[in-house]
């Protein structure tokens, strides 16, 4: 091995080493968040999201270490799969958590969904698929009304 590639190797090794350690720290952060946050929803913030960055850094380090161009597309695809699946599962768990009253109201500074759910529940019973599916003209908060730009189909669905 000639000297200049050796230097490049050292730099690449150093960068990937840093990325690997930081990526592992992201997992540790998720665990700390799991243990320290008080309720399910805030735990979810700590649990699912740092993993996105963690896996990105680890896959990047892996790509640097392999030093072949054909490894990159499959790494990108692996990361994209994670990008597509993480929000969906987080949303499903979060939604289930909200509906099964896993929230602690004393830990919320405001809950703008609560009023909507109450109103919809009072109007026509609790609808499983779409608890907030109601006519926006009846919405309680004036803030929400003011921000709707009244595009086609607003409130007519």
């Amino acid at each position: 091995m000639n000297p200049e590639t050796l230097l490049g190797d050292t730099v690449i090794d150093a960068v990937s080493a840093v990325f690997m350690v930081v990526g592992a720290l992201m997992s540790l952060g998720a665990a700390i968040g799991l243990l320290r946050f008080p309720d399910l929803m805030s735990r979810m913030h700590a649990a699912t999201k740092p993993q996105v960055l963690g896996l990105f850094l680890l896959l990047f380090a892996l790509g640097l270490q392999l030093r072949t161009w054909w490894a990159w597309p499959v790494l990108v695809v692996a990361w994209l799969f994670q990008l597509l699946t993480v929000p969906v599962s987080a949303h499903m768990v979060g939604r289930a958590g909200y509906r099964t009253k896993h929230l602690h109201p004393e830990l919320l500074s405001s809950d703008e969904l609560e009023a909507v759910v109450q109103q919809a529940a009072g109007k026509r019973g609790f609808d499983d698929e779409n608890p907030a599916g109601f006519n926006p003209d009846d919405a309680g908060s004036p803030d929400r009304r003011g921000r709707l730009d009244g595009g086609p189909g607003a409130g007519s669905a």
Partner: peptide
């Protein structure tokens, strides 16, 4: 749900370990 979330994190940690094994 808390347990499911934690199990998910555990899986992600396994994934990270696999990644590091591959990189090293």
């Amino acid at each position: 749900l808390d347990r499911v979330l934690a199990a998910d994190v555990l899986l992600a940690i396994f994934g990270a370990a696999l990644c590091i094994d591959m990189a090293v």
